[in-house]
């Protein structure tokens, strides 16, 4: 359900294009004012930001170029486990190993993209090949405990005794990362690469006839998006101080990211952030009803997607207004302004 609202003419004021990001950042920066007293609350919102970053990266791959990567968790996990293993085994500082691991994730993502493009796989087939990759990664994590800790997981030394283990500071580190990702997304959207993305997402045959190198741009999106995933996953590992087999599992990352993005609006700038915010709040509300959480999650998912019938973003904007009501900070205004609707 890609939205087609990005074909508006470029704005006169270049800075205006980044205003929604600034607004969202401002709102998110205020969150620790009420959550800052509680360490567990800060963990919840920081994890929420992590998922927002995952969703922005996934949006670049799926929303912008239509490649259904069902290995978001695996790519983040390559970054996370990669960085932890390199830093803790070789004694390198985690600031060095995180970009290394992100490059590794990027390599895998670009390779998957390359395969999908070379074999001209459509959405479903790309989804299934990447799902197979994700499940293989999971089996690898469980099957090589001497490297990954298997079911017991790994304690992470890299990042200990830094501000990443403070209660409030990591939130702003993750917020910074998210803002950087959003700016990258926006810059790409506004460049010639963004035009190519939109053209090939809407109709790749036509885009190819118009002289766009579809393969190159798809692989580019897969590569950049996967590096973002790897970097986020690595930062999350050093922040939590622990990585285990469920940290990056398909069920705990991919499903959530997909639902968050679809909820927020596939292919929109702030959709991923909005989706992550709403589902983080919802998770927190349901924390005492752990037994029925999955059930409620399912019911909400079904209701959400049913209300998409007339096309994603308009129905979505209304649905969000109805569902979230008053206690949600205003990124949705920015998001609706951004998509040129409302």
């Amino acid at each position: 359900m890609p939205d087609r609202s990005h074909t508006r003419p470029p704005r006169a004021a270049d800075l205006g294009a980044f205003a929604p990001i600034a607004l969202a950042a401002l709102v998110l920066a205020l969150v620790p004012l009420w959550a800052g007293d509680s360490r567990s609350m800060m963990t919840v919102v920081t994890t929420g930001l992590t998922f927002a970053s995952y969703a922005v990266a996934f949006n670049l791959i799926f929303g912008a170029t239509g490649q259904l990567f069902l290995c978001v968790g695996a790519l983040a996990g390559i970054g996370g486990f990669g960085s932890v293993i390199i830093s803790d085994r070789l004694g390198l500082p985690f600031l060095v190993t995180m970009p290394m691991a992100a490059l590794l994730s990027g390599l895998f993502g670009a390779a998957l993209s390359w395969v999908a493009v070379r074999r001209s796989l459509d959405t479903i087939f790309t989804g299934i090949v990447t799902l197979a990759f994700a499940l293989s990664f999971q089996s690898f994590v469980l099957g090589r405990p001497e490297l990954t800790g298997g079911e017991n997981g790994l304690q992470v030394a890299g990042g200990a005794d830094t501000l990443l283990r403070q209660p409030v500071e990591p939130y702003y580190v993750f917020l910074g990362l998210l803002v950087v990702f959003l700016v990258v997304y926006r810059v790409i959207q506004r460049s010639h690469v963004g035009w190519a993305f939109r053209a090939l997402r809407d109709d790749d045959a036509a885009a190819s006839l118009a002289g766009i190198d579809v393969a190159r741009y798809r692989i580019l999106a897969g590569w950049i998006g996967s590096m973002m995933l790897g970097l986020t996953g690595a930062l999350f590992a050093h922040y939590r101080g622990f990585v285990g087999d469920t940290t990056y599992a398909f069920g705990s990352v991919d499903v959530r990211v997909l639902v968050m993005l679809a909820f927020g609006g596939i292919g929109t700038l702030l959709g991923p952030v909005l989706g992550a915010a709403v589902f983080t709040v919802m998770d927190e509300l349901l924390v005492d009803q752990a037994q029925v959480r999955e059930l409620i999650y399912g019911v909400i998912t079904v209701i959400l997607f049913l209300s998409f019938r007339q096309g994603a973003v308009p129905a979505l904007t209304n649905a969000v207004r109805r569902l979230v009501g008053a206690d949600q900070p205003p990124p949705r205004e920015a998001s609706s302004a951004d998509t040129g609707i409302g």
Binding site: V259, E294, L295, G298, I300, T301, V302, L304, F305
Partner: peptide, 11 residues
């Protein structure tokens, strides 16, 4: 949608 149905049944 079927993903959601799967959640509901599992839930």
């Amino acid at each position: 949608l079927m993903l959601g149905v799967g959640f509901i049944i599992d839930g």
